[in-house]
Computed example of a mutant assay.
Amino acid sequence: MPTLHGQAHVRRLRLLLSLSLVGVVFTSVVVLIGAWTRLVDAGLGCPDWPGCYGELVVPDVERALLHSPDAPLEAFKAWVEMIHRYLASTLGLLVIGLLLLGVRLRHSPGYPWKTSVALLGVILLQGAFGAFTVTLKLWPQVVTLHLLGGLSVLVLFLWLHLGLRRFAKGAQAAAAKRRLTPLWIAAVALLVLQLALGGWVSSNYAGIACQGFPTCNGQWWPAMDWSEGFHLTQTVGPNYLHGQLHADARTAIHQGHRIGALLLGLALLMLTLRYWREARMRPWLGGLLIAYGVQLGLGIANVLMWLPLWLALLHTAGALSLVLLLALAVWHWREPVTEVEDSTRREKEWVHV
């Protein structure tokens, strides 16, 4: 019969598993709400941070005018922005809760304590990016980093949950994990690059800079200003709501995103062809190709339909699915093959011979 200490350990571990999984789902929701906030132009719905016109809730028009006479209150946009902040703050509390719950287990072999600490560090950095997004008036560099930060939180929550599952099964972190091959590294790097390009497209309002597909504005290679479109030292100070770049610069950004999508697709296809023989990798590799195909279709539809709100949100959800699936694929690739799996594999190879 388990001791009281053992029962408490099991309950704590179950709670950690549940909360880490909640974190994966909740982070996805926060990222989507953040995308919605940006798409309805509510990123500056509150001109200050962390409050809204100096209040913890959206004030009335009179108080707002007294606080910021040059920033008239738009109640809907202010509430959208504050809801996003409330949810992001709740996510931060969840991270702190997970860290505190895991303190007693941090010295246990195999417990993913470093992942918990990394998650806290990234969520704090993400909060700073949230503040800079407002105070620097939607500076594209910060907006893009804010998106990448949110996706990093998502991956760390998933990594923490997977590590906790392994720990709950009594398996220690294996020292003999497989190292990522250049093909895996290329796929991960291209996905990160494509996500950054997507954030750059959104923050510079270049989503419909190209009309039509597969051509852009009726041309295969239209007039583009690459140096201005990817000038990463843009001036800090102007209000970047609706963007500051001219048409040719936005066209270059859009085309860059299309080229990135093509390169990512080739990398995922090569990855699948290379490792399809490993049965345990097929669900993740197949899922990646399907998710990529859906995401590609959503991107094309957004261009042809002039970026409707619901479709743009689906495109963001597609990016989340690619991140999760590639993270899961990397996790399962690095995990060592168990003796049972290795024996089964050898038997199949012998039959084929």
Results as ranks from 00 to 15, higher is better:
169 K>W: 10
281 M>Q: 13
120 L>M: 14
20 S>Y: 00
296 L>E: 06
125 L>A: 12
236 V>I: 15
53 Y>Q: 02
71 A>E: 03
226 W>D: 13
231 H>R: 07
129 F>L: 15
163 G>H: 01
50 P>R: 03
310 W>F: 14
115 T>G: 07
184 W>N: 10
311 L>G: 06
40 V>D: 08
308 P>V: 04
353 V>F: 10
165 R>T: 12
270 M>K: 07
329 A>W: 00
205 Y>F: 15
322 L>A: 08
255 Q>V: 15
308 P>K: 04
224 M>F: 11
43 G>V: 09
178 R>S: 10
124 L>M: 12
174 A>C: 07
165 R>P: 01
86 Y>D: 08
44 L>E: 09
4 L>V: 08
204 N>L: 11
147 L>R: 02
337 V>Q: 15
150 G>H: 09
188 V>H: 01
57 V>K: 03
180 L>Y: 02
331 W>N: 05
45 G>F: 12
173 A>R: 13
30 V>A: 02
135 T>H: 06
36 W>C: 02
148 L>D: 11
263 L>K: 07
37 T>S: 06
32 L>W: 04
243 G>H: 09
235 T>V: 08
281 M>D: 04
162 L>I: 00
224 M>E: 15
142 V>L: 08
221 W>D: 12
93 L>G: 12
35 A>E: 08
321 S>T: 15
272 T>K: 01
83 I>W: 11
156 L>N: 06
162 L>C: 01
352 H>V: 14
99 L>G: 02
176 A>Y: 05
305 M>F: 11
188 V>S: 10
344 T>K: 12
330 V>S: 04
100 L>R: 01
83 I>Q: 03
95 V>G: 01
332 H>N: 11
11 R>A: 13
34 G>Q: 04
115 T>P: 01
278 E>R: 06
172 Q>D: 10
103 V>T: 11
206 A>F: 08
261 A>F: 11
58 V>N: 03
123 I>F: 05
1 M>P: 14
203 S>Q: 10
232 L>D: 04
159 W>H: 02
267 A>M: 05
243 G>E: 10
149 G>R: 01
190 L>I: 11
306 W>Q: 11
297 G>C: 06
257 H>C: 07
74 E>V: 14
210 C>D: 12
79 W>F: 09
71 A>M: 02
3 T>V: 08
186 A>W: 08
145 L>E: 05
89 S>V: 14
305 M>G: 01
162 L>K: 00
299 G>C: 05
133 T>L: 09
13 L>M: 13
50 P>A: 07
303 V>T: 10
330 V>Q: 08
139 W>E: 11
